[in-house]
Design a protein around this nucleic acid. Structure first.
Length: 104
DNA sequence: GTTATGACACCAC
DNA sequence: AGTGGTGCCATAA
């Protein structure tokens, strides 16, 4: 839609869907895995194409802080999956999903 | 074509 | 560590 690269957009959505419950990924992670250099594009894709089946709440910013205008709901959803935040910040060292890397 | 804006990221203070 | 400036890709006016 909007003339955007839909294949890229769907790859991003796939990567979002690939993040398991209880873990998170950054916008940069999603963009990179989908083959895009632009984290902002990942954000825009989520804002426009996400639906009830898209775990958008598992995507946080590079420093572990949740999306500003949605932080309350996002943190609540993450908390319900077992992702705890300290002072509004998710511990990426602990919860970041990295494909191919063993769980702890 | 130029400017402003945005679910972001990085570097400098 | 928090704040601010700049870069980034794409859209809207």
């Amino acid at each position: 839609m909007r003339g955007m690269d839909m294949e890229l957009a769907y790859r991003m959505l796939d990567q979002v869907a690939a993040v398991p419950a209880g873990q998170v990924a950054t916008y940069g992670d999603i963009a990179a895995r989908a083959g895009s250099p632009s984290p902002r594009l990942a954000g825009r894709v989520l804002s426009e194409l996400s639906d009830e089946t898209t775990p958008w709440h598992r995507i946080v910013r590079a420093d572990g802080t949740p999306t500003a205008h949605l932080r309350d709901e996002q943190l609540a959803r993450l908390r319900s999956e077992g992702v705890l935040a300290n002072n509004g910040r998710v511990d990426l060292r602990r919860y970041r999903y990295q494909p191919g890397r063993a769980e702890r």
